[in-house]
């Protein structure tokens, strides 16, 4: 599955982002998911309202990286996490 252009990711029930003193993790029913800094920054913008495109645009303003590259990274992360059942993706309302 590939995230569509206006896909809006959100955490499924029982999944939470948790900031620890030295890192950010995802709490899932099966345990803990360690995130690297880029994954943590991306998931910190997942609020059930922002689309993947909007998340990439926001990250592009924080990092000196073209939005098109970030969009590919965001899509890949969302796809991988949704494949594991930790994120769900809905379509933006027209």
């Amino acid at each position: 599955m590939s995230s569509s252009r206006d896909a809006i990711p959100s955490f499924v029930d029982g999944v939470r982002l948790r900031r620890l003193p030295d890192r950010t993790v995802l709490l899932v029913p099966e345990g803990v998911v360690n995130l690297n800094a880029s994954a943590a920054a991306t998931l910190g913008l997942v609020d059930g309202a922002r689309s993947c495109s909007a998340i990439a645009q926001e990250l592009s303003s924080r990092y000196d990286v073209p939005a098109v590259q970030l969009r590919a990274d965001v899509d890949e992360l969302v796809d991988r996490l949704s494949d594991r059942g930790w994120l769900c993706v809905s379509k933006a309302k027209p």
Binding site: L26, V28, E30, G31, V32, V33, N34, L35, N36, A37, S38, A39, T42, L59, Y63, D64, V65, L70, D73, V74, E76, L77, R80, L81, R84
Partner: peptide, 10 residues
Amino acid sequence: AWERPDFEHV
């Protein structure tokens, strides 16, 4: 710096 987002399930 930005790097490819990655994760590890524990």
